[in-house]
């Protein structure tokens, strides 16, 4: 595989996961909000915060319009091609990366990606009502899963396959920490007392993990909550622990596998050495921050392999 393709195939995995996760997040949050918890501290702009935007600032900077806040947020998240967090933008980026590494991906997957792109071009042009949106997001998610399924059944087990999977799971870990950061932690009072039990299962919807959360609760000896679940329960495919396991498994054969593994061990240590239930909310905040910083570093380690090349060629290698 070409050195240059590393970034493209890695990002292909990240964008595919981002597309899927964004669609799930939109649906789950919609459910949460239209359940109309009058006393809920959430508003639609929270979705923008999860995706790394400053929602309040972004919305207040808009010219006056007849659109509701919900519609404006959905514009940013779904239809707006210029918005870096929109479904459309993620899909465009996905397609561009796929085009660049077409020679590495199986024909069936290429076709799935294409039809995903066509589907979005056709259906993500205009904002529609909630019902339509729900179906649309479900379909986006479903089609993302089709791409993954086709790939799993047809792609050569190669560096490209490993990097694609690393991209997916790194993105997923990133999304999980962001959901925790914004939807869980920012809602807690920053006191120094032991953090309150957190059982807000609606949020787990965003991660497709409500049922398995109940299973988890029913099988633990100690008292646990959603935070433990999302961080450490390695059997749940959207937990940080699971994502890290998968990256380890995929990184072993890569030329810079050792450097990647070292980073992951550091992250795993963060999760292991602390007794999560004893943490104060401030400490929990700090932990999440450290995990996020670790994910960013991990990304850099993955995309900059150090290769052993005769010194006279190493300069040209990076040219």
């Amino acid at each position: 595989m070409l050195l240059k393709s590393l970034d493209h195939i890695f990002w292909l995995g990240r964008y595919l996961e981002r597309l899927d996760d964004t669609a799930r997040l939109i649906n789950a949050t919609s459910h949460l909000l239209i359940d109309s918890h009058k006393d809920s501290q959430f508003s639609w702009s929270l979705l923008l915060d999860v995706l790394g935007q400053n929602g309040a600032e972004l919305l207040s900077g808009l010219p006056a319009s007849d659109l509701t806040v919900e519609q404006q947020v959905m514009g940013f998240l779904i239809t707006d091609a210029d918005s870096e967090v929109s479904i459309r933008a993620a899909c465009t980026a996905l397609k561009q990366n796929a085009r660049t590494v077409r020679q590495l991906i199986p024909r069936d997957m290429w076709e799935e990606l294409n039809s995903l792109d066509l589907f979005l071009q056709e259906h993500c042009q205009q904002l529609q009502g909630r019902q339509h949106r729900y179906r649309l997001m479900t379909e986006v998610s479903r089609r993302c899963q089709m791409v993954v399924g086709v790939l799993d059944g047809t792609m050569l087990r190669s560096d490209a396959f490993d990097l694609f999977n690393i991209g997916r799971h790194l993105e997923r870990a990133d999304m999980t920490t962001r959901i925790m950061d914004v939807m869980v932690l920012q809602q807690l009072q920053p006191t120094d007392i032991k953090r309150p039990r957190f059982r807000w299962t609606s949020i787990l919807n965003a991660l497709g993990g409500v049922e398995s959360y109940h299973y988890y609760l029913a099988h633990q000896h100690t008292e646990v909550d959603a935070v433990d679940y999302l961080l450490t329960y390695a059997d749940f495919p959207r937990s940080i622990a699971y994502c890290l396991h998968r990256i380890v498994a995929s990184a072993k054969g890569l030329p810079h596998g050792a450097a990647i593994l070292q980073r992951i061990w550091q992250l795993q240590d963060l999760l292991k050495t602390q007794s999560l239930s004893e943490l104060t909310t401030a400490q929990l905040h700090q932990l999440i921050d450290e995990i996020q910083a670790g994910i960013i570093e991990l990304h850099q380690v993955i995309s900059t392999p150090k290769l052993e090349v005769p010194t006279d060629l190493s300069q040209q290698m990076s040219a």
């Binding site: 070409l2 050195l3 020679q103 290429w110 392999p305 090349v309 290698m317 040219a319």
Partner: peptide, 28 residues
């Protein structure tokens, strides 16, 4: 893709001592 060979641009190749090399993930 059909032949299972690499698709390279000029920046993926280099010449040293009259030998052409491809810059791959595992080196030259």
């Amino acid at each position: 893709q059909q032949m299972g060979i690499e698709l390279a641009e000029n920046t993926d190749l280099l010449v040293q001592d009259d030998i052409v090399y491809l810059k791959t993930l595992h080196g030259l």
